[in-house]
Simulated scan of single mutants.
Amino acid sequence: MAVYVVGDFLRETRLRKGYTQEEVSYGICTPASLSRIENGAQKPGRLILEKLFERLGTENNLFNSFVSREEMELYIEIQTLIRNVTDEDIEKIEEQINVVEKLVKNTSELEHQCLFWAKGKLAAQKDSNNYEAMNWLMRAIRITLPDFNGKTPLRNHLLTFDEITIINSIAVRYAENGELLVAIQLDMWLKEYMESKIVDAKIKTTKYPMILYNLSCWFEDEQCYKEELKMADQGIEFCVKYGNLAAFPRLVLNKGVALTKLGDNVSARKYLHQAITIFDAMQKDNTVQHIIAWCKDNCNFEI
């Protein structure tokens, strides 16, 4: 049985996928550094190793990188910050930003990417300040994608999972600002990228359905109801297959809305009723009442 070291695995995976050292290392480390890592002459740090694996479309599940106590502490605090942002707990986000900010003072710029992303999310959630939020998000993405202008997809570039998250956040900011076509263009780029490049189902499960949900919402706003229905259908199929319960009821709701707009009230009633049932089970009473009111105001039927 073959025995792999991390450099061998990186090199063989990269070559099997047909990527150059420049493509994989861009914005993370120099191609020369990647060459030394692949040849076993340089031991990569935790974050660099993690992002190199992500550019190859997978997680660093096979290799443990020995890290210092300081690196482990920073990793734990960043994970806490990500959870706080996901929970939209503004007070905890602010507290955790202060914790992480102190820990990254003497680290590489790469370690600041998640911090800047969190600051952008905080500016949007707390102050509804799209301008400040976009500035932080662009600072975050340009750490590893310095030539990204915020609007034009870089279709020849490989992406890390953090880059996908940040670009999606940028797309959301454009949508909030009424620039829906830019938002759609960015998330369609991410959708196509994840379909063709990302092989790790666990990581794909956390991001891909929300991108499809965003697209379904934005296509609805653009009155492109067939496209809305297509995105919702793809998202529902993926959620059922991989068990993403967070996005599933939202996608079911959007499918019902799209069917209503397309005049298929029989099918629409079925999916809207399913959405209400799921949200009711989740104790999302406000959402349930919102759906009921929407049906009353916009459909020829009540639920």
Rank of each mutant, 00 (worst) to 15 (best):
Y4F: 14
D8V: 11
F9D: 08
R16K: 14
R16A: 15
K17D: 06
K17G: 04
Q21V: 03
V24M: 02
I28S: 02
C29N: 03
P31H: 11
P31Y: 09
S33Q: 11
L34T: 10
G40Y: 13
A41E: 07
G45S: 15
R46E: 11
L49R: 01
E50I: 12
R55Q: 08
G57S: 09
L62N: 15
F63D: 01
N64F: 11
S65P: 00
F66K: 15
M72H: 12
Y75R: 13
Y75A: 14
Q79K: 13
T80K: 15
L81T: 06
E88L: 06
I90E: 05
E91W: 00
K92W: 00
K92D: 03
I93V: 08
E101R: 14
K102V: 11
L103P: 00
V104L: 04
K105W: 04
T107M: 00
S108F: 04
Q113H: 02
C114H: 07
F116G: 04
W117A: 05
W117E: 11
A118M: 06
K119Y: 03
A123H: 02
Q125T: 09
Q125I: 13
K126S: 11
S128C: 06
N129D: 15
N135H: 07
L137K: 08
M138Q: 06
R139F: 01
I141L: 02
I143T: 08
P146Y: 13
F148G: 09
F148V: 04
G150K: 03
N168A: 13
A171S: 15
V172M: 03
Y174I: 03
A175Q: 09
V182Q: 07
A183M: 02
I184V: 15
Q185T: 13
Q185R: 13
L186G: 14
D187L: 00
D187S: 15
D187P: 10
W189C: 06
L190T: 10
K191G: 07
Y193K: 00
E195K: 00
S196N: 14
S196H: 07
S196E: 15
V199N: 08
V199I: 10
A201H: 06
I203N: 05
K204P: 04
T205M: 09
K207W: 02
M210D: 12
Y213L: 14
S216A: 15
C217V: 14
W218Q: 07
F219T: 13
F219C: 12
D221T: 05
E222H: 01
C224T: 09
E227G: 05
E227R: 06
L229Y: 10
K230R: 05
K230H: 11
I236T: 04
F238H: 05
V240K: 10
G243L: 05
G243P: 05
A247T: 01
F248H: 14
F248K: 04
P249F: 11
R250V: 00
N254E: 13
A258W: 10
L262N: 09
G263R: 12
G263C: 04
D264Y: 15
L272K: 00
L272G: 00
F279D: 02
F279Y: 14
M282P: 03
Q283I: 03
D285H: 15
N286D: 12
N286F: 12
T287H: 04
V288S: 04
A293W: 07
W294H: 09
D297A: 08
D297C: 00
N298T: 06
N300V: 08
